[in-house]
Structures are given as structure tokens and as C-alpha cells.
């Protein structure tokens, strides 16, 4: 078993990977102006959390499926969130003609004259 390369990759690798993934998502949320990009970055962050759950479930026991169950729920919720977000993006695009987050408010002020 010991010469199997997969045995060298412990749960720490997964956790560090998850943290990196989370921060990539965070930076994406912070630095991107496109609303679709932001939603995608949020998905990145969801996936990072999912990875953490999966890796932590191995601490309970070798055959524990608790983490996997949570991940299934989490995935479903993230899909919902993404669907709702895309719906709002569509509406905003129809109303203001843009999905740039920094321009939406100024367009709103122009339209409502406030």
C-alpha cells in the first residue's frame, strides 16, 4: 500500500486545495464586474466548501457518508441559488441593458431621476 502514490496524498492536501479554491472564488467575486462571472465565482466557493466536507468526513470513520450527504444537499442549494441569480441577471439585463455591477446603480438613478 505504501508505494501507492494515492496514499501519499493525505486529507491535508484536499483542505489546502479547498482553501485556495475558496480564495480564488472570493477574488473572483471581489474583482469581477460581470454579474455572471460573480455567480460563477460563488459556485467556486460552494465547491471549495463541498471539498472540505468530503475531506472532513474521513475523520469520522473510513466508511462515513455523512459529508457526502451534506454535499448532495449543498449542490442542490447552489444550483437553486445559481438559477435565481441568473434569473435576476436576466431581468437586470432587460431593464438596464447591462450586467456590469458598478453601472447598474447609476443607470437606476438615470432612469428614476434621483
Amino acid at each position: 500500500m505504501s508505494h501507492n502514490i494515492l496514499n501519499c496524498i493525505t486529507t491535508y492536501y484536499y483542505q489546502i486545495d479547498a482553501i485556495l479554491l475558496f480564495f480564488v472564488g472570493l477574488l473572483g467575486v471581489v474583482f469581477s464586474r460581470n454579474l455572471i462571472k460573480i455567480l460563477l465565482s460563488i459556485e467556486f466557493m460552494f465547491n471549495a466548501i463541498n471539498l472540505i466536507f468530503v475531506s472532513f468526513s474521513s475523520y469520522i470513520s473510513n466508511n462515513s457518508y455523512l459529508g457526502y450527504t451534506v454535499v448532495i444537499f449543498s449542490t442542490a442549494i447552489s444550483a437553486l441559488v445559481l438559477a435565481v441569480g441568473l434569473y435576476f441577471t436576466n431581468i437586470l439585463n432587460q431593464k438596464f441593458g447591462t450586467i456590469d455591477v458598478n453601472k447598474i446603480y447609476s443607470k437606476y438613478k438615470e432612469i428614476n431621476k434621483c
Binding site: V30, V101, N102
Partner: peptide
């Protein structure tokens, strides 16, 4: 300043 990104920051 109505800048979404700075809020997030």
C-alpha cells in the same frame, strides 16, 4: 461611492 467591489472588499 456606489462601488460594488469596494463593498465586497
Amino acid at each position: 461611492v456606489n462601488n460594488f467591489q469596494s463593498y465586497i472588499c
